[in-house]
Design a protein around this nucleic acid. Structure first.
Length: 344
DNA sequence: AATCACCCCAACCGCCCACCC
DNA sequence: CGGGTGGGCGGTTGGGGTGAT
């Protein structure tokens, strides 16, 4: 049972943007007397506003410890990492970014990060490759354009051959990624599948500088997850689902145990499926498509398991093998090791 | 110069939960 | 135990700013 937003509204309190005079009154009053009861504050401070409006104005804008200005790349990475585990728990995310408000982070997510991830072909809700029809359609259109470009090259010269290859590779990679995602959601068991989970190049957590096999999570400015036993306990709690994301959530969120019994914990609904490569560049020529800055985009140097030089080399090799037939064979071999049959 | 479309973000809305009486 | 209240939360809105036409 909720309550009406502002009872004072009935008596015609002011709404809308705050004036500098109102701000001054509010700051002056709170610095002298602290806010006390928000409901009675407007009267005490001589403001024609509802208490809730005063509280929001103070916490989101006037508080002296508010950090203004652009989000740094590190901020952005932290937000993405935390969002992948916590979901839209903006206040929890804000707790890891001193001086930033939940409202500010929420706005930044919706206006910047969300779009960036969508452009990358990543679902901002699940942090996994998009599998929705529209996106797949656009990819198939991309492939169609690529083929058209190929025809044009053969007709009018090969000036655009490089671009055409890039588009082609990008579309193929994205399509394969989506295909794997679909298979993955049905049958893959990540923890037992080193190809996906154990490979630093293929796990989103590794991509963000986190090794989920060695440490719970690395979050700037936080030591909440420094206790390995908490994480391992969380992991064992989730062993049936083999869901590392759930483990992370439990390790991080002291409220999880309360919520988990109801089976409504937000991020878990999204994390039921297994993670797949989060970021894919079209080809080395196009450079790394890295939405989060330099800190997490260097996929090549972290590889210990692949004989190839880079993550992209692996993918390119895979696509090169397409012609020899081993491309699909490799996928089929991969899927045949999983527990249950693939539903096509 | 005028109009339009889109973007951004402060502020609002409505729901929920914890606490108090 | 139940109702009322304070405060917190996530989602949404609307108006100003800006770039494109």
């Amino acid at each position: 049972m909720g309550r009406s937003p502002c009872r004072e509204e009935i008596s015609g309190v002011k709404k809308g943007p705050w004036t500098p005079e109102e701000d001054e009154k509010l700051i002056d009053y709170i610095t002298k007397h602290s806010h006390g009861s928000w409901r009675t504050l407007p009267k005490r401070a001589g403001l024609n506003r509802c208490g809730k409006s005063c509280r929001l104005r103070w916490t989101n804008y006037l508080r002296p410890d508010i950090k203004r200005g652009q989000f740094t790349e590190e901020d952005e990475r932290t937000i993405i990492n935390l969002h992948s585990v916590l979901g839209n728990k903006w206040s929890k995310i804000a707790a890891h970014l001193p001086g930033r408000t939940d409202n500010e982070i929420k706005n930044y997510w919706n206006t910047h990060i969300r779009k960036k991830l969508l452009k990358m072909g990543i679902d901002p809700e699940t942090h996994k490759p998009r599998t929705d029809l529209n996106h797949l359609m656009s990819l198939s259109q991309l492939l169609g354009m690529s083929n058209l470009s190929s025809v044009m090259n053969s007709t009018w010269g090969n000036n655009h051959l490089g671009l055409q290859q890039d588009i082609n590779q990008l579309a193929k990679i994205q399509l394969l990624q989506n295909l794997l995602q679909l298979m993955n959601s049905n049958s893959f068991v990540n923890m037992g599948n080193p190809y996906l989970f154990g490979n630093p190049n293929l796990n989103p957590l590794f991509l963000n500088g986190i090794n989920p096999l060695k440490e719970p999570v690395v979050l700037s400015g936080s030591e909440r997850f420094a206790n390995p036993s908490v994480y391992s306990q969380a992991q064992s709690e989730c062993s049936q689902q083999q869901d590392v994301s759930k483990s992370l959530a439990i390790a991080q969120d002291p409220d999880y145990s309360k919520i988990s019994s109801t089976n409504t914990y937000h991020s878990h609904e999204n994390q039921e499926e297994n993670p797949l490569p989060a970021l894919v560049a079209a080809s080395p020529r196009m450079g790394t498509l890295n939405p989060m800055g330099s800190g997490c985009g260097n996929l090549a140097q972290t590889s210990e398991e692949s004989p190839s030089n880079t993550f992209f080399d692996d993918w390119e090799k895979l696509f090169d093998d397409e012609r020899s037939g081993s491309y699909w064979k490799e996928i089929l071999e991969l899927t045949s090791t999983s527990a249950s049959p693939i539903m096509w």
